[in-house]
């Protein structure tokens, strides 16, 4: 069996994600970093889609790509940090960071490869229906998630208030 379109799409996305991640952390300009992050997030959304989690994919695109990255861009501009970011990093530190990172990555990959995952296949185009998600979110039974849902909503509320409070301009006292 030949390579399907799906697979082509997947690998393209994969390459994009990997390249963009690397660039996001190595580029010298922070605005560019944010842009690469945006691409990575898009790629992630695509992967969710390939997996059949279209709802998750949509959320990813809306919240992350649509919301958070915009926030980043704004704050970058607000803090005037869209300049050159090429700070000097000590050689020793660079070496140790690279070593840690590479060894870590190597170790994880080694574990993944040697773990021997079975080649499970997943049905193509088998989407997770939104209804099922909605049911699970408001149910209280086993494998239903109303409590975390509420908790997250409280968290978001708290965050909102917190963010406003923190970022609020201090009133000048006479």
């Amino acid at each position: 069996m030949g390579i399907t379109l799906q697979e082509i799409a997947f690998y393209a996305v994969a390459v994009c994600i990997i390249v963009c991640s690397v660039l996001a952390v190595t580029t010298g300009k922070i605005l560019r970093a944010a842009t690469y992050l945006l691409f990575v997030l898009f790629g992630t959304g695509a992967i969710y889609g390939i997996l059949g989690y279209t709802f998750l994919s949509a959320v990813q695109l809306m919240v992350y790509a649509g919301g958070i990255v915009v926030l980043y861009v704004f704050s970058i501009l607000l803090t005037q940090s869209d300049k050159d970011m090429k700070y000097h990093i000590r050689r020793g530190k660079l070496v140790s960071v690279l070593l840690t990172t590479l060894i870590g990555a190597g170790l994880v990959l080694f574990l993944l490869v040697t773990n021997g995952f079975a080649l499970n296949l997943i049905p193509q185009g088998d989407e997770l229906p939104v209804e099922q998600i909605g049911q699970a979110l408001i149910g209280t039974d086993k494998y239903q998630f109303v409590l975390p849902f509420e908790v997250v909503s409280f968290l978001l509320l708290a965050c909102m208030i917190g963010a406003i409070l923190i970022a609020r301009k201090e009133e000048k006292k006479d």
Partner: peptide, 29 residues
Amino acid sequence: MEIEIHVIHYLVISTVMMFCGVYGFFTRK
């Protein structure tokens, strides 16, 4: 019809992403 993408492929992507994040976290100021 099923997609023949091994689970490891996904995991490799996430690993690379993860460690890029780690690298960035260590080096950025």
